[in-house]
Structure formats: C-alpha cells, structure tokens
Write a protein that binds this DNA or RNA. Structure first.
Lengths: 276, 276
DNA sequence: CTAATAGTGTCTATTAGACAGTATGTT
DNA sequence: AACATACTGTCTAATAGACACTATTAG
C-alpha cells in the first residue's frame, strides 16, 4: 500500500485501487427443507410425514451427475440475501419464503475449480405450495436421519435413486455446541454439501424447539396431529400427545373447521397464531 | 459459458476460466469480548465486572479516526477461520482462544471503497491472559447495554473516550428470532460494525444460557460470586444466588483453594469441569 | 461490633413426563 | 363392532423462583 497522505475521505476514495487485494468468488447455496406426506395405503392410517430436501443434479463438471444444493454465484452488485432469494425463485418458482443464513463455508479446496466461498441458507417451504414448478434438474429427496453423539447418518430417497452419507461429529470445543464434521461416506453429493446439509439439519432441530419456524412448512390450516408429526420427523423422536398439546397451545388458534374422512374421530383444524 | 463437451473432470478443470464470474473481496472481522474487573475503592466491596469489547482506531481512510473491529482481508490461499485467527494474533498476540463464526454481512455499500463481504467472528478471552500485548491502536471498551423489545442502546467507554450507539430491532419474521438491525445513532463506529457488535451481543447472551462458553472468559480458578457476576453483566440482569448455584454446580468442581482478604467470609475457588 | 459477601434450607410455582382414560368417525 | 386417531384428566418428577437464614472475615 502506498503512503500518500490524504486530506479527506473523498480524495482517498477517488484514488483507491480496489484490486490491490486478491479477490475471490462467492456462491449462495440453499438448503430447501420441507415435510411431505406419503400415503400409507391403509385408509385409516395417517399419511406418513417425510422430512425432505431439494437437490439438483449437476449436468456440468465438476461433479457432473452428482447431486448438489441449489446455488449460484453472488453478483458484484447483489447482496448475498438477494442471491439466495434469486436461486430459490429459479429452482422452485417461489418467493416470500422463510429464509435464514446458516453458515459460511470457506475451505480452500471445497471447489476443485478455484477458491469459492459459500454462504449457505436454510429455506422452509410448505410443499403444498409447489406442485410442478420445479426446475428440470431439481428433485425432492426424503431423508432418514440416524444420529448419536459421534455420528450422523442420512439416507436420501427420491423414489428413483437413493444413497446415504455418514458424517462424524467432533465437538470443536468442550464449552460449546459447535461441531466439526468429517465426511466418512459420501458418493453422490457434490462439493462439501454433505456437511452443509448436516449443519442445516442440526440448526433446524435446534430452532424448532425455541422458535415457531415449523409453521413455515405448514399449510394455513392443519390438525394438531399433523403438526405433531412434523415435529416428530424433524426431531427424530416421538412426542407424548398431552405434552405436545400443552406446548403448542400458545402458538395456535382453533378454527371452526374440522377434518373428517379418516375412519376415526374428526380432528379440529388449527391456524398459526404469532404471539404479540 | 461455452458449450464445449468435456469427457472428464480433469479435462474440464484444465480448461476452466476462473475469471468468468466477477469476484469480490472478503474480510474477517472479529468481536473480541471479555469481562474486566473494575476496582470499587471500598476494600469490602467486590470489584465490578464490566463487559468489554476490543476496538481498533483506524488510522487510514475510509473512516479515519473512527473505531472498528479488528479485521483484515481473507487471503486467496487462507481459510476464513485462519484469517480470523491471524487477526486475533495480530491484535492481541493470543492464540488458542475460543472463536466461533457469527454471521456474514454482505450489504453492497457496507464499505465505501468497494464491495467487501465480511465474515464476522466472536472471540472470548480471559482478560488476565493479556496485559500489554495489545497492538498500538487497539483499546478495550467497557460496554453498558440497555435493551428492550424494540431498541438496543450500547455505551462504550475506554476511560479516555466514550460514545454510544442506538440500534432499532425489527423481527424479520414472526416465526423466528432473527432481527433486522437499523442504526439510529452512531458517530464513532466504522462500517456496519455497530450492527455486528449488536448481533454478537445477542448471540453471546443466547449461548451462555445453553452452553459453557462463559468459562472461556474465566481464569483457571474463580469464585462462584465472580462467575455469577459475569453471567449477570452479560445477561444484563441480576440472578438469585441459590438458583445460580444449582444451575452451575454441574459445570464446576470445587477446589481446596479459598480466596481471602475481602473483609468477609472467604470464598471457595472453583474450576471448570466439562461434562463427559 | 459491623459491613459485606459466602453459602444453605426450604417452601412454592411452574413445567415436563407418563399413563390411562374417553370421544367419535369410517368401514 | 372394531380400528384408528382425537383429545383430556391427572398424578408425578424435575426444575426454577423466592425468601429467609446462617457463616465468616477485615477492619
């Protein structure tokens, strides 16, 4: 850097060489999560809820024919949030969807082409809102998650293909809840997206406990049974009905509508009610 | 992008033009938090704990003579984490300090020179570990935080200068806990660092409730009174002794040592004990 | 003795877990 | 009638809040 003395910020900026530091490329990658209903065949049984993520098949190198998260480069005149929204629109044709920044992944060789830093986002959608607006290479994968202290296993299934990943978790520091993820098995996911997915699942699990973000995955009207299933499939464990209903009653409002036809007592439809 | 068909990833990569997308600059900015003890004058009274942040006076444009967070450009061959560590070492001469990524700020005009995306980090240090290793322009500022639903006010004081900022909080979405911060008053902090500080304070407040990260700000041996004060100054509220001791007993281990000389009953010194 | 902090006992209020029970639709 | 889910009542366990009390030292 030169040592010229400037008298004002204007003068300094006019003279500033924006290329004196090396620049790098940035992408926004989006974890689009949803919960889908799978019919069971038995007219009496409830449809099973499946926790799903949207993946895109790469039709170019690198990682040609592998699956990856919807993503794209951040433009020089575009905020990162705007890039993430643009990508969501491109892949799902949806706007006004819940999104939040997840984490920024900056390993040097995470992309074989060159140094690319990825800012990841989580998006939550109600699957009823999108039927066939998906882009050509995009596909919903149902996930099954098996987790203990040391390892996470996720299996992905889109009814044509299925595969699984195994990720080892290591606490970065005994005082915190931050994990370092080490990919032990992954054949089908491009880049470091296996880690991104696992990181996003952890965030979502955490946040449904102390926020209302689940409702972004629900239709306007829903039964408490359905809502409970969504919690259960994300948390990966069953909940007790009375405890669940006690917890949820502050967040929802009963409607006059009921849902019948299930071969059992009709259930009341509820709506989300944000607390003031 | 050209449409040449490649037969392999190797062939593709050899041909790849890494400059086809616009690149941008990235910095890592670090919130270095600590809790300092301020003597009270009265030999009997405990020293007051002050929640502090390390700021650096800019000696160059832009924002010449304003205060900012320690930060620097991320090198093209350097991970973002490594950049953050390098910056911490430069400013405090400390290594092996607790750090975690906070958030990535990517507004287009957050830096008047050019498009710079900032990945912010939180670092927590025990102030006893650094006495006079600070870099020339760095200074610890004690913070006083006043917060309600809508607004955060922080005053900064380093015993020579003091100033305050006012930030409005707006929930981005009723279902979540994400805020948009709008700077209402700020005369002394450079860039968007007022927002970054407020964002970091919020994260810290949150995380001390469900992790053990406070212990990164404590010396090896401490009294429960001191520890409670640290919690209180970060949370901005008083805690009840019996409840605090019940909560903390699973995290600490009593030692044989006691601290005397305070004109009152001596207190037992404790150590952090991570749970297995 | 006094001021100040250290540390404990215990009552109460709130919340979470568990289980058993009742209600009601469709075939 | 039987199955499957909807929904509730209530006991218990665990946790958090509140307050009062005892302990101990330097000056």
């Amino acid at each position: 850097m030169d040592n010229k003395i400037y008298k004002s910020e204007e003068e300094f900026l006019k003279d500033y060489d924006s290329n004196q530091f090396e620049k790098l490329s940035m992408t926004a990658d989006t974890l689009i999560f949803s919960v889908a209903s799978e019919e069971t065949g038995n007219y009496r049984k409830l449809s099973e809820k499946k926790f799903s993520v949207l993946l895109v098949k790469r039709d170019n190198y690198p990682f040609k024919d592998k699956w990856c998260l919807p993503g794209g480069f951040v433009g020089i005149e575009e905020t990162i949030d705007a890039a993430a929204k643009r990508i969501l629109k491109t892949e799902t044709n949806l706007q006004d969807i819940y999104m939040e920044q997840l984490y920024t992944f900056g390993d040097i060789n995470r992309d074989p082409r060159m140094r690319i830093v990825s800012v990841s986002y989580i998006a939550l959608v109600d699957k009823n809102r999108l039927k066939d607006h998906l882009s050509k290479n995009a596909s919903w994968f149902e996930m099954n998650i098996l987790e203990d202290d040391k390892e996470i296993q996720v299996t992905f299934d889109n009814h044509y293909e299925n595969f699984s990943i195994v990720i080892e978790k290591k606490l970065k520091n005994p005082t915190s809840d931050r994990y370092e993820y080490v990919v032990k098995k992954n054949t089908q996911l491009a880049f470091d997206h296996a880690k991104v997915i696992v990181c996003g699942i952890a965030r979502l699990k955490n946040k449904i406990a102390y926020t209302d973000i689940v409702f972004n995955m629900m239709p306007k009207y829903f039964t408490l049974g359905e809502l409970q299933q969504v919690y259960e499939v994300i948390l990966g464990k069953e909940l007790l009905d009375p405890a669940f209903r006690r917890m949820i009653q502050t967040k929802v409002k009963k409607t006059e509508k009921v849902q019948t036809g299930g071969g059992h007592r009709p259930s009341v439809l509820f709506q989300y009610q944000p607390k003031k």
